[in-house]
Computed example of a mutant assay.
Amino acid sequence: MAHTQDFDLKTLIRELLQATLGGEYSAHEEDSVLIISESWEGYSDEGVSLDLQDIPEVLLNWAQLDVSQGPDVNELLVLDLETTGLGRGNTLAFLIGLGYFEDGKYKVEQIFLPEPDAELNSFDRLIELLETHSVLVTFNGKSFDIPVLESRLLYHRIWLNLREKEHIDLLHMARRLWKNTLPSCALESLEYYVMGVLRDPEFDIDGGQIPQAYGEYLMSGDVEPLLKIVKHNQLDIIYTMALMVIICDALRLPIEVGKDARVDYHAVARLYQSQGQKDVAKQILCEMKDLSIATVESVHELGQLCKRDKELEEAQHCFEYGAALSHPPSLLALAILLEQTKEYEQALEYTEQLLSQQQSLPLPDLRQLHDIDKRRIRLQRKIAKKAHK
């Protein structure tokens, strides 16, 4: 009799779960999972663009993907998990969020566990989508989602080498593009500062509260708090793709410098320069300077690229810009350039300015002070030698 009552309660909770969250149960005879799906064309309900045209080569190179077999956007699979904890051991992935393009729309598919016993069945749909999509897209997935998934798959004796699958982890690219301009590169920070959206606490839940909320559902059968968890995960999948769209638009050639105020074009230039495309980097930095959106650091880097190309007059102008703002690297670069062009008096002037600046620091770099002083003494000798000729 007790077994029958437990079965009836389980059935009741499952019916209530589907009525509250929507979706359909999988076809498994026992321990089926609830699959919730929704699609958007062009823009999400929050107004962020989900229109991904293609993936720029520079991003593929950075992610160490095969550029010659550049993936189509329909091959991307966004992944985000909600779990019962932050560790890997004994952590259950009770909600698997997936996003992919289908028939011109961006579809979010969420696989929810009504009870922990259904975990094994949740992997069937996941594996099916992994087989039909060649590239994973995550936000911090390499450090969290993938290790958790591998652990749970191994627990069920399923071997799936997710680490060998092509993977774009947008957290690391976001840090590369925005670490110098944003207070944080957490997803919610990027949502606010880059996408211009703010999550509504009436419909969302803080990520740190999710494990406890799921635990309370298992204890009480109350499904209402799950609405916020599902919405939180859905937004993670939507905003991860929205971030992918912004990054791809920012990196796509030709770079339209200044078009998008959310983009740090200096970081874009550095990305291209890191891949040996110095001419592209130089063009970006030049346009930043022409549009008066350059920083002292970007102008200094432009000066170094001009110097590489033997454009010494332009390089000197760039270094003088930074020197006027007491930018130490520009002062040093200008002193070096002037010494190379045998303008020793001016080189000495900037060297002494740099030396004075470094000596005034609370904790100066003694080795750097020594090198600057050596330069000062050398220049004084060259000036004296020149005067005796």
Score class of each variant (00 low, 15 high):
Trp159Asn: 12
Lys10Trp: 14
Leu95Thr: 09
Leu348Gly: 08
Ala281Ser: 13
Phe123Tyr: 12
His388Lys: 13
Glu339Phe: 01
Ser274Ile: 07
His266Ile: 02
Lys231Tyr: 12
Leu21Ile: 04
Lys382Glu: 10
Tyr192Gln: 14
Gln316Asn: 06
Leu305Lys: 07
Tyr321Ala: 04
Leu291Ala: 10
Leu113Asp: 05
Ala63Ile: 05
Leu59Gly: 01
Trp62Ala: 11
Asn233Tyr: 03
Asn121Arg: 01
Gly258Lys: 01
Leu9Trp: 15
Thr20Val: 09
Glu164Ala: 06
Arg367Ile: 12
Ala174Met: 12
Leu81His: 06
Lys142His: 00
Leu354Glu: 02
Gln346Asn: 11
Tyr100Glu: 06
Tyr265Pro: 02
Asp66Ile: 03
Cys286Ala: 00
Asp6Pro: 05
Gln359Trp: 09
Lys259Trp: 00
Leu50Lys: 02
Arg375Leu: 09
Lys228Ser: 10
Val257Gly: 00
Ala384Ile: 04
Leu170Tyr: 01
Trp159Ala: 03
Ala27Gln: 03
Asp204Leu: 10
Arg376Thr: 06
Ile35Phe: 00
Gln234Ala: 12
Phe94Gln: 02
Gln277Gly: 01
Gln5Met: 13
Lys228Trp: 06
Glu15His: 05
Ala261Trp: 08
Val135Phe: 02
Asn90Ser: 08
Cys248Gln: 00
Asn74Trp: 11
His388Gln: 14
Gln277Tyr: 03
Pro225Lys: 04
Trp159Pro: 03
Asp80Trp: 01
Lys386Asn: 15
Ser49Gly: 03
Ile13Lys: 09
Met1Ala: 13
Glu311Met: 14
Asp72Val: 15
Arg375Val: 03
Asp31Ser: 09
Leu354Ser: 12
Val137Asn: 01
Val197Gly: 04
Val58Ile: 15
Arg14Pro: 04
Trp62Gln: 12
Asn90Pro: 09
Ala27Cys: 05
Asp80Lys: 00
Phe94Val: 09
Asp145Leu: 05
Ser360Arg: 07
Ile293Tyr: 02
Phe112Leu: 12
Ala242Ile: 10
Val137His: 08
Gly85Tyr: 10
Met288Val: 01
Asn180His: 10
Leu12Val: 10
Leu182Gln: 13
Val230Ala: 00
Asp54Met: 15
Lys165Tyr: 06
Ala19Trp: 11
Ser360Leu: 06
Ile229Ser: 00
Ile205Thr: 13
Met173Gln: 04
Glu115Arg: 14
